[in-house]
């Protein structure tokens, strides 16, 4: 099928469905997981966490748009947003404290609580 105007095979642009958004969410989630696993810097791990939360929010909003119930996904996403903001503030406070006491935020080096 070609677009009636541009005479190019553009049908793939007209069939954006739920799965497209879920695939983007999955890629963001896996990028976040990779970040969390690969980084030693605690701030880098926080960056990965934010990517993961964004991927989850994107899925929530996409399911809301393609599902029967309006507004629920958005409401849940806003709560996730609030929790993410609190998490970032507390986590950075902890990171700064660790840095104060050890001059180091490499998570492989901060092993004082290791059993």
């Amino acid at each position: 099928m070609t677009s009636p105007v541009l005479h190019l095979p553009l049908a793939f642009l007209q069939t954006i469905g739920l799965a497209h958004f879920l695939v983007v969410g999955a890629v963001l989630f896996c990028a976040g997981i990779t970040t969390v696993l690969a980084r030693r810097n605690a701030v880098g791990i926080l960056i990965g966490l934010e990517l993961i939360l964004n991927a989850a929010n994107l899925n929530l909003v996409a399911f809301e748009r393609f599902g029967p119930a309006p507004l629920r996904g958005t409401v849940f996403a806003i709560f996730v947003l609030a929790v993410a903001a609190a998490e970032a503030a507390i986590a950075l406070a902890i990171v700064l404290n660790v840095f104060d006491s050890r001059d180091e935020i490499d998570v492989d080096e901060t092993t004082a609580l290791k059993g």
């Binding site: 890629v27 990779t34 990517l51």
Partner: peptide, 10 residues
């Protein structure tokens, strides 16, 4: 989103 997320990861 994907390119910049991969950039953030790597």
């Amino acid at each position: 989103a994907i390119v910049s997320a991969v950039a953030a990861a790597t």
